[in-house]
């Protein structure tokens, strides 16, 4: 059963329409179904936390939005376009923060932040100025010329967040970006991230397997069951009080226990 207390967004930025994704041999019985008839609409400016157990197809869904995977059935639309078939149309329109920082080890912090802008052919002076501003905004002033190996895990992840924001893409995809960090650093970065998303009016999809993280970051929480299909979909409201959050937590726990 699907529980939902959200109305469909007026102008969906991301849309899954009866999407399924299977892996394995075609025509054989050992196909693995990662996503099963998924229907989901995410509105412009929403910060949606996608929550689910490990292996429930969250990352598959994420990769389909990013255009890195093609759905086996159904239709994925981002800003009205097919992210897989029209891959290059999304240049500068989607930015990703990955689970690990994925910084280029041969580039300094500032060069890593400027990387996305370089791909967009932004002139060097302009992209370095923008990268510098984002590094400063994320508290990394003074570390511009450090190589990734000289930075801590939290600092590296901040560089990768700055890299994603620097391109000014409208859509941000985040695949458990803070899961490898200690609790304090993770909490601080989560707050910074949510603030930046809201300040800059981005549409953000945040993949996580942590209920706490989903409650802390999301305006809306979508819980997936395995294979990926919506089990619970709720909107929190930015000023949701402790009681409301605890109520949602209890519901999510019940859904995940099913």
């Amino acid at each position: 059963m699907t529980m939902t207390d959200t109305a469909p967004p007026a102008r969906p930025e991301i849309r899954f329409e009866h999407v399924s994704k299977t892996f394995g041999r075609v025509g054989a019985t050992d196909l693995f179904r990662a996503v099963d008839d998924l229907n989901l609409e995410i509105g412009s400016g929403e910060l949606v936390a996608i929550l689910g157990k490990t292996g429930c197809g969250k990352s598959t869904m994420f990769n389909m939005i990013a255009g890195l995977l093609e759905p086996s059935a159904g239709k994925v639309e981002v800003s009205g376009h097919d992210p897989f078939a029209q891959f290059n149309w999304f240049r500068g329109k989607i930015a990703i923060v990955f689970q690990n920082d994925r910084l280029l080890p041969w580039r300094t912090a500032i060069e890593n932040v400027a990387f996305g802008l370089e791909m967009l052919d932004v002139p060097k002076a302009e992209r370095m100025a923008s990268a510098q501003a984002w590094l400063t905004k994320l508290g990394l002033g003074g570390h511009e010329n450090d190589y990734p190996h000289a930075l801590s895990g939290g600092m590296r992840q901040r560089v990768s967040i700055a890299r994603a924001f620097a391109t000014n893409a409208n859509i941000l995809l985040c695949d458990e970006p803070f899961s490898a960090l200690d609790e304090m650093t993770g909490n601080r970065l989560r707050e910074e991230f949510a603030r930046l998303v809201r300040e800059n009016g981005k549409t953000a999809v945040f993949i996580t397997h942590s209920i706490n993280e989903a409650l802390q970051i999301g305006d809306r929480i979508v819980v997936l069951r395995r294979p990926a299909k919506i089990a619970y979909d709720t909107r929190l409201g930015r000023d949701a009080d402790h009681g409301a959050k605890e109520d949602i937590r209890a519901r999510i726990q019940a859904v995940l226990a099913e």
Binding site: R91, G92, F98, L104, M119, L120
Partner: peptide, 18 residues
């Protein structure tokens, strides 16, 4: 790293160079 670079939709030359 390939996925990360691909996510920025680089040209072939950019992919090779960077």
């Amino acid at each position: 790293l390939v996925e990360m670079v691909m996510s920025f939709r680089p040209s072939r030359v950019q992919m090779f160079r960077t």
